[in-house]
Design a protein around this nucleic acid. Structure first.
Lengths: 305, 305
DNA sequence: TTTAATTGATCAAAATATTTGAACTATGTA
DNA sequence: TACATAGTTCAAATATTTTGATCAATTAAA
């Protein structure tokens, strides 16, 4: 119960339709008209269906002919796509590449890279996800993604390629009208205890959850990204550490105020990371591009001038 | 810039994978193992890509091989589908058949028919739409559908096949607690004027809109189907004529009360209708099935016992 | 209207492509 | 170690496709 449809026959049908005649199609396909006749008659015979109406001299597609032509074109496109995809895969380009961006990172420079990549390699499908804190290491480890941009701290296990982007400095910030702003600095940890803390919920699902480094036993407001955390603290819903470069404007405009604490928090190192087993050119390309970037205390991730 | 992929090669690849060996695939395809070798080597050569890892005795698919296998299977399915579709189309079955059911009709018997049809002809795609009043004639005329079930009255122009199902009797009904129930019957048209009328909005878009036959110049509540009209009248939002068979239960349960009017409304004839140019077996099948049904004053559309 | 040009079909011969079967190599198994 | 199995290679056999010449039906041009 095989289908007698052949890629070659579909290609012939397509050429006949585009060029409006058997003769022109023959020319396009570097064949002789009788060869085209043969190909079509064969398909008609095998299929048991008339594809052209021969009552006139000028062969016209029948309804079924048109159906096969139109659906057949999709099959042609699919095989051509598949060929291209196979060649790219063979050359080492991934079919799919999943990038995970930690919510800490400013996305704009990454979007620029992605745009560049898509021009270079339009057939590699890119998937972006956002994770926070340990979540990105976890996504990498469990093969939910191939590349992490903005992984914080050290890898939780072996087998990762890693490139240090820089340090993120965290500052303890509160909204301008917050009662803590009236207190004498440095502020004791004791005093902070009275206000709820905004924490970014770690999206880790498989690796042991890592703490955000904030003090325990207080009321918390959990949010899912740095953006939300910044917004929550501006509204005065809570207090907490924020990456300095992400709140530069807010500090300048006075929406947030930086406070000195009795106990300061050391800067965290952030990196890009990938699995050592990732040999695809896509991952390599992104890594080599990102190696040329630095993470700057003031401006976040960017290409150095 | 042609793709060297061949349906035959994809089929061979598929057989090798399913049967776990070149030899078994050869058997399945009624060929000799060396022919299978040849087909695969040719594809590999034309594609310039290794599909099997021959480092061991047992040939194993490479990553690219697996890609071509998996995507190729979809192409195989598509060509087989296309073949089947072409044959059915050639035999006179539609690829797509659009049926329009007037909201007046009780749908259950139509759904039964549809289920039967899908078993008989699973490759004909059915599309159902619902129209009201003249909307169904309009949909037929403008080729938005191929068959109307429940068209009301006479065709607005030539060129339609038509089969009368029966008469629909309309009764003037109001909710049980409606003030009109306290009045002496028959009720004058004058008295009705005081209450809003629920009208089903004609969904016609191209043909001249036909009136619902209700009296003009009063406040109206427009709804989009009979179901909504019934619901609205039960709630006492308005009054109006309803098809008797659709509100049998509501009358028995006392949710709606039938009122006698000074001026009675004559029953409307309803039919199935199709374009005379429709020669497809699908339309013919539905017509012949529906010819065996009648539209009964009490139970609506049904197969006679 | 007649003529010339074009379109597609048909057919035998020629050119290609595929399949076969025997011989061979490598690998895993008894 | 010998044996069986899996896949490859190669020349010969077979099948398929392409070609080129010829024909009939249309259409365009003279």
């Amino acid at each position: 119960m095989y289908s007698p449809i052949t890629i070659d026959a579909l290609r012939t049908l397509d050429a006949i339709d585009r060029r409006r005649s058997f003769a022109a199609a023959a020319e396009e396909l570097y064949r002789v008209p009788s060869a085209i006749s043969y190909t079509i008659s064969k398909l008609e015979e095998d299929l048991g269906v008339e594809l052209f109406d021969r009552s006139r001299r000028k062969a016209e597609l029948t309804a079924v002919g048109r159906l096969i032509l139109e659906q057949g074109r999709q099959i042609l496109v699919a095989t051509e796509e598949l060929t291209a995809l196979a060649k790219q895969t063979d050359e080492g380009w991934e079919t799919e590449l999943r990038i995970c961006i930690d919510s800490l990172i400013n996305c704009e420079p990454v979007y620029d890279l992605i745009e560049q990549f898509q021009k270079l390699q339009p057939r590699t499908e890119l998937r972006l996800t956002e994770e926070v804190l340990g979540g990105s290491w976890d996504a990498l480890n469990s093969e939910q993604c191939d590349l992490v941009i903005g992984a914080e701290g050290d890898p939780p296990s072996q087998g990762f390629g890693i490139h240090l982007l820089g340090q993120v400095e965290f500052v303890f910030a509160v909204s301008a009208s917050h009662p803590l702003t009236d207190m004498q600095q440095p502020i004791s940890l004791q005093a902070i205890q009275d206000y709820p803390t905004v924490v970014v919920t770690d999206s880790s699902r498989y690796l042991p959850v890592r703490s955000t480094g904030l003090l325990d036993g207080r009321s918390r407001i959990a949010v899912s990204s740095i953006e939300h955390k910044i917004a929550a603290q501006i509204r005065g819903l809570g207090v907490g550490y924020l990456p300095k470069f992400r709140i530069k404007k807010e500090l300048e405009e006075g929406k947030l105020k930086q406070l000195m604490l009795a106990e300061t928090r050391s800067p965290r190192s952030i990196s890009i990371a990938w699995r050592n087993t990732s040999k695809g050119k896509g991952v390599q390309w992104f890594v080599s591009q990102l190696r040329q970037m630095v993470f700057d205390q003031d401006s976040g991730l960017q290409r150095p001038k």
